Simulated scan of single mutants.
Amino acid sequence: MRTLSLLHRWIGAIGGLLLALLGLTGTLLVWRDELTFVAHADDPARSNAAAVARVVERLADGPAPVDRITFAGDGLGVHQAIFADGSGAYLSQSGEIVARWTASWQRPELWLFDLHHRLLMGDTGEIVTGIAGLIGLGFVVTGIILWWRVRRRFRPRVWPATMKPGAIVHHHRDIGVVTAPLLIVSLVTGVLMVFPALGGSLIAEARARPPQVQAASSTVARRDPAPLFAAALKRFPHAELRRLQWPRKAGAPLILRLRQSFEWTPNGRTFVYADPVTLAIVGTADPATGGTAASIREKLYPIHAAKTGGILWKLALSLTGLALTLLGSLAVYSFWRTRWAAARARRRKRSV
């Protein structure tokens, strides 16, 4: 047990701040839509395919090549356009540009997402966050084991009684065991999004690949997308348009994402693939016909990011993120304060 305690404390002292960072940024991202301060953000979403088509056509005719556009929805009443050079814009549902940026760091909600998801380090950062999630799960399990020995001292507090190491340790143990179930849910869903193979065949089932098209380049023809939207909604009559992704290389299709009523993911996992030249549909992917693995995988992000469950789940995950922030930051503070105090005592003893 002593070895387990040492491992728990030393690894926490090294990685605690990273977990605290993920907890704090995750808490803020739970309220990402509410913290997107831009004109028309609170407008109710209007399910008007013709109006959406006009906005898309206007953007496609602009000077900057478009990478993707995410359409206004229940959480955010503006369209979000991302251009091929990394810049972007928010547009009202009537097509008026209400905000522009040349880099993601100019928009706090985009910068926070990249910090939480990739630590501003691209794919390498994503792997690091996944490893941090695994370490966090290890902390939860070992923390429960270590707490069990002193369970009679259980006195849950929002904040330590004092900022002395002993009081911080007691607070750390008690708040950790109280929030352990929610921490496990948050950490497991985050880890499985980064490392789906850890879920075994139940999660890591091979995904369907988009069909190839006979296109000499990735350029999308300047056509009215209204017929494409109408054809997609005819195939999925109860779905809503959520995102249009331009092809990023020759031979790739134009991808239209829709969300059906049974889907938890805000942007849906219903895909319609179209030829970028003719805008004719060349394939679809319907999650209603997918297997168990696809159904479980589709729910990981909405659970992790509180995109389902309403206000109660948002509040629960917010408290969980704040708890993780306290657990990580105060553990680092307490550990190194104790070490520094012990080092000072040894120096004084030698100087006497």
Rank of each mutant, 00 (worst) to 15 (best):
P165S: 04
A250F: 06
S94A: 08
V213C: 05
T129A: 10
W148D: 01
A60N: 13
L330A: 09
I281K: 07
R100V: 12
A285M: 06
F271I: 03
T270E: 12
H79G: 06
V177S: 03
W264M: 14
L76H: 00
S261Y: 01
H79D: 12
L254Y: 01
L228K: 08
Q212R: 12
K307T: 05
P108V: 09
L233W: 04
P65V: 06
F236A: 05
G309H: 14
I311A: 11
G122V: 03
G136A: 13
T124H: 05
D85A: 06
H170Y: 12
V194I: 15
F83Y: 14
A226F: 14
W313G: 04
N48G: 06
L112K: 04
L18V: 12
L7T: 14
F236S: 04
P196L: 13
R347C: 02
I168G: 12
R235D: 03
G15S: 13
L312T: 14
R339E: 12
E263S: 03
A342N: 15
L110A: 14
K299T: 15
G15I: 01
W159N: 00
A45D: 04
D33L: 11
R297P: 00
P287D: 11
G73F: 05
S218G: 14
V98Q: 07
L7D: 08
L326T: 09
G16V: 00
D74L: 15
G268W: 10
D74T: 08
R58V: 05
V332M: 11
L35I: 13
R350L: 13
G143H: 00
P63R: 07
G77C: 06
G26D: 04
P63V: 05
W105L: 02
R46G: 02
I175P: 00
L256W: 04
D114P: 00
D74C: 07
L137S: 11
A232G: 01
V128L: 14
E57N: 06
L19I: 14
R235H: 13
F195W: 10
A13H: 08
P210G: 08
F229G: 00
A331Y: 05
L279F: 11
T124I: 05
W264P: 03
I145K: 11
T102L: 05
P181H: 15
I69R: 02
A53D: 09
W340H: 05
D74H: 07
A41T: 02
R100G: 02
G190H: 14
P266C: 05
P287E: 10
L59D: 14
W105K: 09
G73M: 11
W31G: 01
Q214T: 11
L7H: 05
L192C: 08
T102D: 15
I82F: 13
G321C: 04
A274E: 06
L4A: 09
S351I: 07
A226Y: 10
V98L: 07
L187Q: 03
T27D: 06
H116N: 03
W31I: 06
A167R: 01
H116C: 01
H8M: 10
L300P: 00
V169P: 00
R223P: 02
V30L: 09
F335Y: 09
H170N: 12
G88Q: 13
F335C: 03
G136T: 12
W246Y: 09
